[in-house]
């Protein structure tokens, strides 16, 4: 048994793990400055060829929907804006860590990003790119648990799968907190934008979101739809329940839902082997 205070301290120090790539560490030091400008971020990306190629890859992927249209980092920055770029950089930098932490979590996260975008477009909800980024990062708390406590977390996943539990319940059995808590801890530590923080913290309790209820509801639903389709792996084989408040907030009709599910097919098969492995 691990007490929560101690657990939080350990999770917050996750950036000292050798499994965290150096590019993420550098990025976090850039983001520590809340007044960092688009120019500084641009210079930071351009100085790192691996990061540059990943950013170009992501903005041209189905996640962002500018397929084959963006060829420079500056163009990407102008199109996407500071908050989205910050989140996207976190997304591409946690790629390795995510692959290492849990098999299938990257696919789940990309699937969630793509699906949240489909829902947002369907309902005319703004901030599409910000919502997509949140899709990639909503389960960052699982990455933290999986990297910091690899054996324990494998045990948690096994419990969830064997007993047919939701991953949050299996997490609580061992850690007394969930990945939503650990995700919000590192999010606060790493100066994530406020909207992203709320989405991470409340994606399983969307009715508690105060400032970003719509965005949180979209990620909540996208998470469930991706699991319903069986795309990727989020730690369990049973789908969490749709929160009625979130459902009302988004206001999808049965017909909308049908169309979203059909659109997911194309987008998910396109993202099926979307990977950031360096060629």
């Amino acid at each position: 048994m691990i007490d929560t205070k101690n657990l939080r301290a350990q999770i917050e120090k996750i950036d000292t793990l050798p499994t965290i790539p150096s590019v993420l560490k550098k990025l976090l030091s850039v983001m520590e400055n809340p007044k960092v400008s688009l120019n500084e971020i641009g210079a930071f990306i351009s100085n790192d060829p691996v990061l540059t190629s990943r950013v170009i890859k992501v903005v041209n992927s189905p996640v962002y929907g500018f397929p084959g249209r963006i060829s420079s980092v500056n163009q990407a920055l102008i199109l996407l804006g500071l908050n989205v770029v910050k989140g996207m950089l976190l997304g591409v930098s946690v790629f390795e860590a995510m692959k290492k932490a849990m098999e299938g979590l990257w696919e789940h996260s990309i699937g969630c990003a793509v699906t949240s975008k489909i829902i947002a477009i369907k309902k005319g909800i703004g901030d599409i790119e910000e919502i997509s980024v949140a899709g990639i990062l909503h389960d960052i708390g699982k990455v933290a648990l999986g990297l910091k406590f690899p054996d324990e977390y494998k045990g948690v996943i096994k419990t969830a799968v064997d007993k047919g539990l939701w991953i949050v319940d299996a997490e609580k059995e061992l850690f007394f907190v969930t990945h939503a808590d650990t995700g919000s801890w590192i999010g606060k530590r790493w100066n994530f934008p406020k909207s992203l923080l709320e989405i991470i913290e409340y994606h399983h309790k969307p009715h508690l979101s105060k400032g970003f209820a719509v965005q949180t509801a979209v990620i909540h639903l996208a998470d469930i739809l991706v699991r319903a389709k069986g795309f990727g792996f989020a730690g369990d084989h049973v789908i969490p329940l749709i929160n009625p408040t979130a459902w009302q907030t988004i206001g999808l009709t049965a017909q909308d839902l049908k169309e979203v599910i059909a659109e997911m097919d194309d987008s998910l098969s396109e993202s099926g082997d979307f990977s950031l492995e360096d060629d």
Binding site: A228, V238, I239, I242, K258
Partner: peptide, 18 residues
């Protein structure tokens, strides 16, 4: 299996049907 814990939740019934 995925819907085995969905119970009587109205939205889950709709999602399963779709």
């Amino acid at each position: 299996q995925r819907f085995s814990r969905s119970g009587e939740n109205e939205q889950m019934k709709l999602l399963k049907k779709v």
